[in-house]
Nucleic acid binder design. Structure first.
Lengths: 192, 192, 192, 192
DNA sequence: CATGAATGAGTCTTCATTCAT
DNA sequence: GATGAATGAAGACTCATTCAT
């Protein structure tokens, strides 16, 4: 799980970058091999097929994302602060890893998505759901289906990150809190 | 602009459905031809290439969407009512046209997007921007960049529509107003 | 044989020019049609197929060439003078009609050549052969097979004309007599 | 440079034969692959495209020709003898390799010629030019542009070889010296 | 384990030809 | 006669995958 892992990682990273650049079918295995400095056949020692490679890559980046997101989360803090922290961490992760951002977006919207349901690393999701549930239970968040809530929030984050890289609307990191406020105002419970 | 248009439309609709099903590269021209009941070569009378076909298809559905969204908009009504109407119309359009929904999402997140910049039908966007600007100017909406605002709202709509078709979170049309409320609460001006 | 002929001629000339430019298979019928300002199907009123068109075109230019070559030939003159005149006329014809030159060369060296043996306008050849035979009989030319002689001479002419248009060896019309002298010295009877 | 070269050679030879038979566009890559006993895609490991294959094939046969032509050339011998030897060697080469003869003729007269100017093996030409220059300098040949001279001579050779294979004029190897005499008499200096 | 040459099914695209108007 | 939209077989080329070394 060392030298092997290194080679696997090289394949992952190469794939990630190439797919961002050229899309799934603009990225032949031979190109991945070249960029990762391995032989074509070597890839097939680690992955059964291109589909598998991509599915595993999805799980790989998903885990990285989860790790980054909850880093620095302090359960002692107030809910709103934790919310802002989590959202901003998430945004910043995407901004630091645009390859991941674009790969995930392509993946989710492609037929790959429902093909080989590599068990999604649910841990990330569960932790998020727990957090949201707590917000609802304590009356801070609107009482809603937490899955729905989670997805709406995530979509907000992704949109923000994509905007950051877009040409048309120029935003920078200082604008993030304002943008987070939109989703916070959206989900928080106004009944008080 | 009749029989011709019909053939072109048949090609469009076939492509739309097939791409939703199989993605861009899971949809060979021969398959489009078959479904549209034309010969392979016929497609090339109407479109220079597969890329062109897809780019024009994007413009085609974009226009349909714009038309549907603003139908029934009544400028006399209160801003909030108009807002709800527009968002709900938009959601319902996607729900009536899932092929369009998935095609657009795939298109936007694919390298096609920045390839042949078929002049986006900006009219749709401009009308939306005018509407949002009015909301800001009258103090109903948060003072923000209208482009940013527009995209956040649209992303919310798309997420909602996708959720409608997803297996994991089961929502139906009755839930829509609650979901719209999230975005409304998010963008409205709370300073009052 | 008038309006029709005009259309036929337009097709001929268009084909000639396009083939010079792009070669046989770089010249689709649709392109010929466009250049000749007729519909695609119209060509098929005049010619059974592309092969036929090309074969007939070959006969067409061959005849033009024969006409040009013997124009101004004076049977009263000395043999050598007539020889020079014929050869130079031939060279000049090719120089005035480069499309014809390149078309013929392509045709002769292509599989079209032995496909549909449109009866070559032998008249041209016969007249040449008679001329050469007379030269041999009177002892002015080397005693050789006249077909062989004719082809060697023609090849000399074609090479000269092609050289005229080539970039590498720059010759002009003043050089022609010297070049003709080479072939004349080659075929004339030295026994005297 | 062994097994690889063999496969490349097989592709070359197959292409050569098929093109002679069917011409450039009568020879699909699939046919070449079949005859060379390789897969379609294999050809693309060795050549970027059909154009490249043909251009490289041209260089390949050109080199073979040059090698054959100067074999047995003896600089000690008299100029005229060397001239006859070279010309006859050249003729015999074409007669031994009709595929090459017809391929070259087709190539030169096709639009391929000026497409990818694979550096012509100039060595062959230079050696010929040196030889001709020597003939002019020593007063044996007519004082002419050596490029022009070279091309006229080559054209004579090609015409002879083509005649050998033609149906209409039946010549055989015994006739060659007489035919060579025509070009020799044409280019030699008569001033003496 | 690693290599990368070889495979060949499958893709986009072209174009000679037809035929309803 | 003239048109040009429609046809579909065929071609160049790609690329996921295999396997002998």
């Amino acid at each position: 799980m060392d030298i092997l892992a290194e080679k696997k990682k090289a394949i992952f990273e190469s794939t990630l970058e190439l797919i961002k650049e050229n899309g799934f079918h603009g990225t032949p295995m031979s190109m991945v091999a070249k960029k990762a400095c391995v032989a074509c056949g070597t890839i097939y020692h680690y992955f059964d097929s291109k589909d598998t490679l991509i599915a595993e890559l999805y799980a790989y980046v998903k885990k990285q994302m989860a790790d980054a997101m909850f880093e620095g989360d302090d359960e002692q803090k107030e809910f709103k602060d934790r919310f802002y922290h989590l959202i901003l961490s998430h945004c910043r992760f995407y901004i630091k890893h645009p390859n991941t951002l674009y790969f995930i977006e392509q993946y989710i919207n492609s037929p790959y998505n429902n093909r080989e349901p590599v068990k999604d690393n649910e841990q990330f999701q569960h932790r998020m759901w727990d957090f949201l549930k707590q917000g609802i239970d304590t009356g801070v968040l609107k009482p809603m289906n937490i899955h729905l809530l989670g997805i709406l929030i995530h979509s907000h984050v992704v949109t923000t990150a994509k905007l950051y890289f877009s040409q048309r609307v120029k935003i920078n990191e200082e604008d993030f809190p304002n943008i987070v406020q939109v989703i916070w105002d959206g989900v928080k419970n106004h009944s008080d």
